[in-house]
Design a binder for these strands. Structure first.
Lengths: 200, 200
DNA sequence: AAGTTTTTTGAACACTGTTCAATTGGAGTC
DNA sequence: GACTCCAATTGAACAGTGTTCAAAAAACTT
């Protein structure tokens, strides 16, 4: 069936996502161009649009890949022997963002063209990442009921995220003080301590 | 001198920023178009580029306006009689973001074309906003030295910001639980309590 | 070899930010 | 009023974007 080379559809999909991630890492979300991705892998723009129906679809696939890599990174950090698993998570969060700044930012700064929410399959991948954190929060706070764990987890992720994004873009010039990572970790520790000693 | 109407240069500047903010509020940063702004105020695209040398320049002017309005909003909330000034700040932060979602997000999602930092005059305006918060942090923690106040302030702003952006984009689906505002306020209170009882 | 089906193409369209030679129209001078 | 002068204003032109889709190409089927 008219294949130009011996790429199956899913191989081609992976090829595009890989090259897309490479370009995203190089030029960032603003200058990212689907045309360029196609050109770089030696296919025409039309082929790319046959695989991913739209720019949103391509970007979603790229961000999904970044998210799974991020989850994997967190799990690795947790697997590395070390007592303080909460610290491992917070440091892992920052590490990945610092190592992949433009891809990481794209997760947050890409929005669907129609302004609507991301599709379910994508949100499931986000949920996986949250799940990794929630498991550790639950382990540290055994007396907390599941709903409260999820609620606190989201608040902690939000806290760390805020520090991380301010650190990457120095809009608020977080540099030149106790590293943002440590500030984030301090906030997380305080929140956990409060949850422990609070409504016990 | 060839004026088409009786707009002085700074009146024209304000006219563009106002219409730009209106369009930004309507369509968001992604679909924002300098051409459309020009068309809407009845000037050509060329005139707009004579006033603001680039898209970045226009966007910075728009964001600067948003920032000063935001600062004003916080000061108003602080001026409204009420004991808990920290809560007023946190609630004011969220209020403004929720009332001006697209303009607020643009502050964070616009980046200079060359990837560099924003010009000094712009950063000064950001500094003003931080200053409003820092003053309250200092008031609540009188024993803290100025450098520590600034450091803690940035951490607290980062914390609140993280909750706020997760609330606006429901990427992480913060809804359906204790409102994100209250979670953010809880984190801030814990941090302040820790700073009070910590290295005292 | 002929026919069928799937993949691939790239010109075409409507849009973007940006530039800059040409035009416009008010101010000053005679 | 006529005539410069010059800043303000214009908009076609350029290189780029995402998107579409009739046509071409390539592989599979009979």
């Amino acid at each position: 069936m008219g294949r130009r080379s011996d790429h199956t559809r899913s191989e081609l999909e992976a090829l595009i996502v890989d090259e897309g991630r490479r370009q995203l890492a190089e030029v960032g979300l603003t200058r990212f161009s689907a045309r360029d991705v196609a050109k770089r892998i030696g296919y025409s723009i039309g082929t790319l649009y046959n695989v991913f129906a739209s720019y949103d679809g391509l970007m979603l696939a790229i961000n999904a890949r970044t998210l799974t890599l991020w989850s994997a990174h967190l799990r690795e950090r947790l697997a590395a022997r070390g007592e303080d698993r909460i610290a491992a998570l917070v440091r892992g969060y920052f590490e990945f963002a610092v190592q992949n700044p433009r891809a990481w930012v794209a997760i947050y700064e890409h929005h669907m063209a129609d302004g609507g929410p991301a599709p379910d399959w994508y949100q499931a991948i986000v949920g996986e990442l949250i799940g990794v954190v929630a498991a550790e929060v639950a382990a540290v706070l055994p007396s907390l009921e599941p709903a409260a764990v999820l609620s606190l987890t989201r608040s902690l992720v939000a806290t760390v995220h805020g520090h991380c994004i301010f650190a990457l873009y120095r809009t608020f010039d977080m540099l030149g003080e106790t590293a943002p990572v440590e500030a984030a970790l301090a906030r997380v520790r305080e929140a956990i301590a409060a949850a422990r000693g609070g409504p016990a």
